[in-house]
Write a protein that binds this DNA or RNA. Structure first.
Length: 149
DNA sequence: GCCAACGTTGGC
DNA sequence: GCCAACGTTGGC
């Protein structure tokens, strides 16, 4: 069981959008590091949904519902196969209290979180310890395996 | 709106 | 294979 963090700019696709859709394709990733993390995702893994730019806070819990497969937003090019992949995620539960970037930064126990150290990476791993800390800060309980919105 | 960080591209 | 130029992300 691994934990992840998905960044999205709310004006493009927000937590509210995801709650309405219930699930979505995490498509359009154009960064190899992010893609490699997606390849490691397993069905049932949990993740945080983070609003970048506006909000700058983790707002909800998601889970992986489909393993990595080819990204359908890739435009075919001659002599080039599609290097990009995506996963499907579903909303699980909102965080009771959003966890802001400022709060993460001011917590010495979270100083190694990728959110702080790999600022620009849009798909990130979270350690179980960090995951638990963030849930504590959010005053939110670990969801049941298989929980859904 | 600015700019630092950093990934990608392309000339050599 | 190096590195300068350029583009993008995302915090401030």
């Amino acid at each position: 069981m691994n934990y992840w963090l998905f960044k999205s700019e709310p004006y493009k696709y927000s937590w509210d959008n995801l709650c309405k859709d219930k699930q979505t394709y995490w498509d359009g990733v154009r960064n190899y590091q992010a893609r490699n993390y997606m390849r490691q995702m397993e069905i049932g893994d949990f993740g945080l949904f983070y609003h970048s730019n506006e909000g700058k806070e983790a707002v909800g819990i998601v889970k992986i519902i489909k393993k990595c497969y080819p990204d359908h937003t890739f435009k075919p090019e001659p002599n080039k196969s599609n290097p990009w992949e995506m996963v499907d995620i579903a909303a699980v539960a909102p965080l009771k209290k959003a966890v802001t970037l400022a709060a993460v930064k001011s917590n010495p126990e979270l100083s190694n979180m990728a959110l702080v150290t790999k600022q620009r990476l849009s798909v990130q791993p979270i350690t179980p310890e960090e995951w638990q800390k963030v849930l504590d800060m959010a005053e939110t309980k670990q969801p049941e395996r298989g929980a859904a919105l």
